[in-house]
Every structure is written in structure tokens, then in C-alpha cells.
Amino acid sequence: MKPEVGARHRQVVAEGLTRTQLVAYAGASGDFHPFHHDEVYATTHGFDQLFAHGMLTMGITGQALVTVFGDEGLDRYAADFLKPVWPGDTLATELVVTAVHADGSVEVDISTTDQQGTQVLRGTAAGRLAAE
């Protein structure tokens, strides 16, 4: 992605999210809230099925940030969780440069949508882009 206002990067970050991935995230993060791995618990508490941790959606979205900022280029990453993400969902993240500063750092808007185009996460990030 070029350091120009309006430059865009789009990346499919999850294809058919699996329950196994939710369990893997529970183990890696330590967050074993039953909403995210216990179908019976989730349906008993008013949901159609179990759903992804908001932090899993943010982590998955982070793959697109690593693509453009590299492993150590980020100064800030913020996200709001707008809608639940369900097993089977395919997610795509789009980054749009909104500001370029004199020191070479940039700011981007972040939007992650599911296969129906519903925005599930919105956010912002800032840092230095990795060399292309």
C-alpha cells in the first residue's frame, strides 16, 4: 500500500471460520467464555449458535495490518466490535489511508465485513508502512 491518502488494501482474512479456530483462540488467548465454544450455553442464553470472541475478529483483522505495516510498524490499533461473527463466516478487511504525516507515518481506517457485506468491525490504526 502506498503512503497516499485514499490508498487502499483489501484482504480476505478468514474463509469459512471454523469452530475449531474458535477453540484454538480460546486456548491461545486464555478466554474460555462459554459463548465461544459451548453451543448449548450460547443457545440457552438467546443466541442462535456460539460466536467468535470480539478479540478473535480483531486478531484476524490484524493479519491485514501486518501485511501493510509489517511485524513492528504499528503505533496504534483500535477497533469497535459491531456485530457477532459466526462459524462459517468469511471475513474481508479493507484499509484506507486517511492521513500521511511528515515523518512518514500514516493513519488508516479499518473495516472488516462478512460474506454478506455486513460490517462486523470498524477501527483505526497508525504507524509506518512496511516497504513494498
Binding site: 496504534r76 490499533y77 483500535a78 469497535d80 466490535f81
Partner: peptide, 11 residues
């Protein structure tokens, strides 16, 4: 959990 912010001083 409605949102999250990370500020990186270094990685």
C-alpha cells in the same frame, strides 16, 4: 466487550 485499543511504544 465493545472495543479495544492498543498503543505500542515498542513491540
Amino acid at each position: 466487550h465493545a472495543g479495544m485499543v492498543f498503543e505500542y511504544h515498542r513491540h
